[in-house]
Amino acid sequence: MAKGKVRRRARKILGEEPVALVWCEIHKPIPTPPKDLHRAAGKGRLKSRHHWLWYAGAVVFFFVVVPMILIGNLGRRHDQRPSGRSRGRSRDRDRGQDPANGLFDGDWNLTAGQLLLRWYGYSPSPKRLVMLTRDRIYVAASPRRRLAPTKADDFRTVMEFTLGQARIEGEAGQPRGYATFRLAFADGSWLEMGRLGEPEDADHFLRTVSG
């Protein structure tokens, strides 16, 4: 469960005890938006900023590990090339049928799409803290790139919605590690969230929104 400092910070921001809260993330890559809409929204970053160690690891992987894999499997890949092309075309068709990648409703002009366009403008980290009160939904973020969700106490509210503007859609009893919920807006748009942090918080949050 979220540590005391997180809950104290939440109470300070909300002015009351939250009914439920949970750390979560956008658990799929943000699709590429139309260039004109991205430009109009300020051309914000659509990917998280990685720590320098991630880039170092990527360099080692691509220049050391990948060549070894390619050399070792060159013959086998050559033999399987026809079926590989077929599977690739199938994956392309699947992606073409769902350009939003199941992440949101697909309309960049509505609330969810506009939120995605500004997501990393609020924080370089993909993590967000969703807090519920009796009549509002709050989404908070930390200015840090890397944070421990159980201990972070520097988050601030970046979005606030009344229950007439947005609602949470989720089901209780989802498998740990795969649980998701939707932030659904009054204009019909929606955004799916996953990677829910802290099992006790996640279970309580989902029970609350599904009740």
Score class of each variant (00 low, 15 high):
169 E>P: 05
60 V>M: 06
134 R>H: 14
71 I>P: 00
117 L>P: 14
70 L>W: 03
74 L>Y: 15
9 R>H: 03
10 A>N: 02
180 T>S: 09
201 D>N: 11
38 H>N: 12
90 S>A: 11
30 I>S: 11
198 E>V: 04
132 L>G: 11
111 T>K: 08
154 D>R: 04
176 R>W: 04
88 G>F: 13
28 K>F: 03
33 P>D: 08
124 P>R: 06
130 V>P: 06
112 A>E: 03
16 E>W: 08
75 G>I: 11
47 K>N: 12
195 R>F: 09
17 E>V: 02
188 G>Q: 04
121 G>I: 01
66 V>S: 02
136 R>I: 00
210 S>Y: 07
177 G>Y: 01
4 G>S: 12
171 E>V: 13
44 G>R: 14
148 A>S: 09
57 G>V: 00
179 A>D: 11
122 Y>C: 10
176 R>H: 13
87 R>F: 10
177 G>C: 06
194 G>V: 00
188 G>E: 03
127 K>V: 00
96 G>D: 08
48 S>I: 00
151 K>C: 07
17 E>F: 02
144 R>W: 00
181 F>N: 09
36 D>S: 15
74 L>Q: 15
115 L>D: 08
98 D>N: 14
17 E>G: 05
31 P>L: 13
3 K>S: 12
57 G>C: 06
115 L>S: 07
18 P>C: 04
90 S>R: 13
80 Q>K: 14
133 T>A: 04
110 L>Q: 11
111 T>F: 05
159 M>V: 01
38 H>M: 11
178 Y>S: 11
150 T>K: 10
184 A>K: 10
136 R>A: 01
173 G>V: 09
159 M>S: 08
81 R>S: 13
142 S>A: 01
4 G>W: 06
198 E>R: 14
198 E>H: 13
30 I>T: 01
209 V>L: 10
83 S>A: 14
210 S>M: 09
51 H>Q: 15
82 P>T: 12
158 V>F: 12
129 L>K: 11
82 P>M: 05
51 H>A: 13
71 I>L: 15
162 T>K: 02
57 G>A: 04
197 G>W: 01
47 K>P: 00
104 F>L: 04
25 E>N: 13
82 P>V: 10
28 K>V: 00
139 V>K: 01
156 R>W: 10
115 L>C: 04
143 P>W: 06
166 A>D: 06
67 P>M: 06
129 L>Y: 09
128 R>C: 00
190 W>N: 04
53 L>S: 14
13 I>P: 01
7 R>Y: 08
14 L>D: 01
8 R>M: 10
202 A>P: 09
108 W>R: 14
104 F>M: 10
197 G>P: 05
51 H>I: 01
66 V>P: 02
